[in-house]
Design a protein around this nucleic acid. Sequence first.
RNA 1: GGGGGCGUAGUUCAGUUGGUUUAGAACGCCGGCCUGUCACGCCGGAGGUCGCGAGUUCGAGCCUCGUCGUCCCCGCCA
Length: 602
Amino acid sequence: MDWKTRQYCESITIKNSGDAVHLCGWVDTIRDHGQLLFIHIRDRSGVLQLVFDPTVNQDVYDAASRLRSEDVISIVGTVLERSDEAKNPNIVSGDIEIQVNQVDCLNKSETPPFVVSEKADQDGAFNVDEDLRLKYRYLDLRRPQMNINLIQRAKLLQIVRRYLDKQGFIDVETPMLTKSTPEGARDYLVPSRVHEHQFYALPQSPQLFKQLLMMSGLDRYYQVVKCFRDEDLRPNRQPEFTQLDIEAAFIDESYIYSLIEPLIVELYAHVGVTVPTPFPHIPYETAMNEYGSDRPDLRFEMKMVDVSSVLTNVQYRIFNQILASGGKIKGINVKGQAEKLSKSFLQDELAKKVVPQFGGKGVSWMKVIDGKLESNIVQFFSDEEQAALISALNGENGDVFLLIADTNPDLVNEILGKLRLFMAQRQGLIDETAVAPCWVTEFPMYELKDGRLSSVHHPFTQPEEGELPGPDDREQLIKLLSRSYDLVINGEELGGGSIRNHDPKRQEMIFRHLDLSESEIEAKFGFFVNALQYGAPPHGGIALGVDRLVSMILGRESIREVIAFPKNRTAFCPLTQAPGPVSEAQLEDLHLRLKPIPVPST
RNA sequence: GGGGGCGUAGUUCAGUUGGUUUAGAACGCCGGCCUGUCACGCCGGAGGUCGCGAGUUCGAGCCUCGUCGUCCCCGCCA
């Protein structure tokens, strides 16, 4: 193999006409015309057309005609400009071809289980069962589209590393075999052979280590790091995923914003997209009230409006009862869609199927026609109430109002928020080319879970400034805000972080808020609390989901398109067949015995 | 853990209310022809445990039950 002379397809252009070139790659497509044979050779950079003419070289032609899809070949030939009528403007290299003088088949290929060639990708036509793709992932990744995804991911991470290096950040690796943390997701556990009956946990994030690095005086840390969470999968969730983990000392929230925003801008610039700055800040409460979500999609308006006060005396009984029992009525204005939303859709589809799926009992609809409302329930609304509704929701002719009412105001936000997204998607009101980032801030410190207080972010987050409530003052605790922030782009949470507690007394109080006993704190975070006693600097940080960020920037539908070897929905790897059983001897080493799985009685 | 969809050729799918002998299509694959294709074209061919098991029926790809696999929604994901 003369690897020294070998070139990539993309490096050969019309400027190389007449040059001798050496290419290595795979047989992409074959077009046999009898006395003329065309073969596309593919490498990671692209494809080039090879031409084989028996009148030029019979032996090479014969060898080429034995080639099949995905055979690995090495060729030497001459670059020729194609005649004008033979040029193909649809292909990057369509104005040249290689007259081949020597062809070597380095390896044959079985017929692949799906077409690898780029032609299968055209018009997004590639449609193969994902489990089959994962089983033959090496072939799937050989597809030009997937090759590009991995290459672009690497380029984007290079931008990240260069940027953070320039900002003085130090890349530090943290342990994969570490200690189980009590809160959050389920841990992946690794049994210890040396320490009988003891387990390591794989990190859900390097949270405590990066804080310890701040106490180590490192000042600015980052890491592109795998994190593990043993929870059920979702389309955009993998059991192991990659985070861009960042922490800095002697900083505040504004530092994080000023660090991350230019980075996001630079990453998007790599694919030619301009991101508007500065990113707007939306307090959590506002996000919930106006968008019904803590990750608002700002690519479209359709804000939620509270119309309860407009309808206090309405004669419509359902609304009346809900308002009387402390409930809320909120609405959205689906602009200009009156003609595209039929009564049967609104009444049968939306009210009876879609909204119940979101957890709502129903939805009221009204169309604005000739300055008046039209609806199946409009007779219950006085002229004044109709006018007030139109004004509250900024109604114009052709608009459609959708109202959600419930005795539980939080539920109203949640359902209407989902409906807002549903309607925007269904009616095509989202500008798919837009990039709409924002910071969601001022999250509550705690939420109630099964009657217990639990951290919304994590227990190392600093609460808002000021005296902390006592552990028994639940009313104040639930109102307490935290110095945390989420980065949201196009309705997807791409990361989050906070300013941390560096004062051991305040940290201890937070553990007490969470009802952790002295001994529990000692057992779970003893080393960390101890570290806080030795001069911990004020610090904070953020973690960004790399898989999500990359797939969003590249416009891919799933994070699995930008992960080389992902797991399927059941956290199984069809390629390696992981997870799998282990030998008795291995279990013996680990002092483990498998318990039989109980068979459900029928 | 709960609810739903899907499982037919290598791939993507069709298959009527259960009805006949040989379960179809496109792409892919194999063979032949073809000197400018690039979604090449033309002719021919091979290829099927209808996921698996039981049941209903004179008869099941189709109906019922179970099971396995997979995808989606909810729970879960500090």
